[in-house]
Amino acid sequence: MNALSRFAANRGALIGLFLLLVLVAIVVLAPVLYPQSPWRMVGRPMGAPLDGNFLLGTDTLGRDVAAGIVHGARVSLLIGIVSTIAALLIGVPLGALAGYFGGLIDDAIMRFTEFFQTIPSFALAIVLVAILQPSLPSIVLAIAIVSWPPVTRLIRGEVLSLRTREYVQAAVTVGQSTPRIIFTQILPNTLAPIIVMASLMIATAILLESSLSFLGLGDPNLMTWGYMVGAGRSRIIDAWWISFFPGLAIFLTVLALNLVGEGINDALNPRLRKEVRK
């Protein structure tokens, strides 16, 4: 059975994939579904869901909650993917260098990595965003900076075990250069754990961005889910829908990404899968 059919046999992973596809469809169709700015006040403040023209109701200023969620999906997905790529770009090369060369280089890189790991990541992200001014690039940067250390540790461990494989030694004996060995012999074989980790990192990044926005540290020009939850929290008793629906959107997205990540993991590492016992 190949990886694809193993993935297809996993019900949880398929549900996750379905949710993700819905999310992507919403992002793509956002300009058609809600062509107007989500910041525009379009109706009576605090209108209940299904009351009047608004599917998910309106917030304290009469803005459409559904429009906010649709436009917020784009920001969440964008930040999740871009910051994960940025974190991989920092973490993978550092991990590969540390694992391949070992010795002093390994020590230096790993102490540097631990330096970042010892600082509470959310506190560091808040500080970074506050210093750099809240904007899309600064948020992406902050999330990337707090989430690369686990990547480095993972890649270092993989490379440490791969570099002692005989095929890597064979590459040394035929005279391949070191960068070539790292890029053609070692890194392609770390692809499976990288993919699994990346899918889970996107979920964490979305949560982190939501938390920042909730605290009012989001990009002030962008409607995000975290901001919506934060803005509606003071009226949670009399207008629950303002916070509830963006929160549900975050929950479903993170759940979907985790299900897909687990599914990919099981599909790529079939032997690690929990055995089903009667």
Binding site: R165, E166, Y167, Q169, A170, A171, Q185, N189
Partner: peptide
């Protein structure tokens, strides 16, 4: 090399 399973890049 010794191990025919580890000496070729998969």
């Amino acid at each position: 090399f010794q191990d025919p399973y580890a000496s070729l890049n998969p």
